[in-house]
Design a protein around this nucleic acid. Structure first.
Lengths: 249, 249
DNA sequence: TAAATTAGTTAGGCGTGCCTAATTTGTCAA
DNA sequence: TTGACAAATTAGGCACGCCTAACTAATTTA
């Protein structure tokens, strides 16, 4: 048999079947439908296809079982999912239910290489002795400062506007704040400041670390800053502008 | 007009149109088709739809242009893509062409929250003063050791099998190697060792940090270890088994 | 044991996103 | 000014993944 490629939906079915078998010993059409949020006929149809392709064992009106091939595929997906979820929770500090959902959407698209590197990063952040196991703890604090959960550490606050970010302009660049630029200057975003709400508003507009831009219009307390990036005009107020570290040549 | 949700494919079209306009001033059907890897009729059809939904301005046989809504959507996607690509390259050390491809597949599925946290992580790893800017450099070295590019640092090597990983078993756990367990013992994978080839073989089997398992069969130089995880039997040779750190109660 | 309930199936349909083949439009060169 | 060619379109079709409505099979339960 030639290599059959499973669609995302099919992979989801396999994962659900595996989960059900592990949890309840058997996988029923109805329960699969419920978990996947589809109608029963959709499940029947999908099971027939998966059965044809050799991933499940299924005859009409019987329980669904996984073939070895199906088990392998399901398990692979499942463990990817679990790891990603843990990464989101342990490293990125994302809330469990959100992490679960995100992991599920992304798992299909992660290559081996990237997964492997994420695992390395996870292990590194949690363990590296040379780093004195500070890293993850520090990063957690950094998130908390940023979220305003704990008092913002003054050191953390300033940390967003200093340093030597690996941006991609020429060598002879100066780092400054967007709010300090003059009309017509070009630059590249290096960092976004710690205020989460403000930062997310900026991110939402598509201005991220690495974005190249041109300052079209200086602003001030009353006037919006207007910048052109990637063929797109963006307006920012001065609070936002003074929270964006940029590199200019 | 009610909130129109763009499909992945439609988002890709918008991004391509934006890129083309930025690069070549105009977006032609033919070039869009080439970049997206689809036929011209598919593009025509898609442009009509996007035009109906108000994201592009398009009349038959004319250049494609973006409406403000289209520009916003395209730009958002584009900047997400750029950031992800940078993250993959700068942090995970993934090769540019691969990073590009991966970023493109994942960008559609990243929520604001996760994107924001990844940006924080990126900034943190690159900048945090408290961490003495060591982190990213150290991680890069860790990757290189793991890949066998440079000599494996003995300290890095041992770092994979020590420490206090945030696994999810009870409190009273002991860390050891999978190869040291007896048949019937249960545990949870904590870390995978530094040898990249071996590690990837393990990952491929779906055994990742966090996986809970039961040792079904002890192995040795001649005999495979056989472990059950997530309802799935996995065989490992003793090299692999002695590269897996586990937590047991 | 017959009626009622529930699980599962079949049949038919729909939107999306793609395709090929055939046709139309526009442009440039002989 | 008229072919020749390239670009774009129209027409018709296909696979996928989902749906509802109507039916059948199996199991309760009165």
């Amino acid at each position: 048999m030639t290599q059959v490629i499973l669609s995302e939906s099919q992979q989801d079915y396999l994962k659900i079947v595996l989960d059900l078998i592990n949890e309840k010993k058997v996988a029923r059409i109805k329960e699969i439908a419920r978990r996947k949020g589809v109608s029963m006929p959709s499940v029947t149809e999908a099971m027939h296809k998966l059965s044809n392709d050799g991933f499940v064992q299924y005859s009409v009106r019987e329980f669904v079982e996984l073939t070895p091939a199906g088990e392998t595929a399901a398990h692979r997906l499942s463990s990817k999912n679990m790891f990603l979820k843990n990464f989101f929770i342990d490293v990125l500090g994302i809330e469990e239910s959100v992490a679960e959902k995100e992991a599920c959407e992304i798992e299909h698209h992660l290559s081996m290489t990237t997964l492997d590197r994420l695992i390395l990063l996870y292990q590194f952040l949690s363990e590296c002795k040379k780093n004195e196991q500070l890293t993850l703890t520090l990063f957690k604090k950094c998130i908390q400062s940023a979220e305003g959960v704990s008092e913002i550490d003054p050191e953390c606050k300033s940390c967003f506007v200093t340093g030597n970010f690996p941006h991609r302009l020429g060598q002879n660049t100066v780092h400054t704040l967007l709010s300090k630029l003059k009309r017509g200057q070009k630059g590249q975003v290096v960092m976004l400041g710690p205020d989460t709400e403000l930062r997310r508003r900026i991110i939402e507009k598509g201005l991220l670390p690495g974005s190249a831009f041109l300052l079209e219009e200086e602003g001030n307390a009353d006037q919006q800053y207007c910048i052109l990036t990637d063929g797109c005009s963006i307006e920012l107020d001065s609070n936002a502008a003074s929270m964006i570290e940029v590199a200019v040549e």
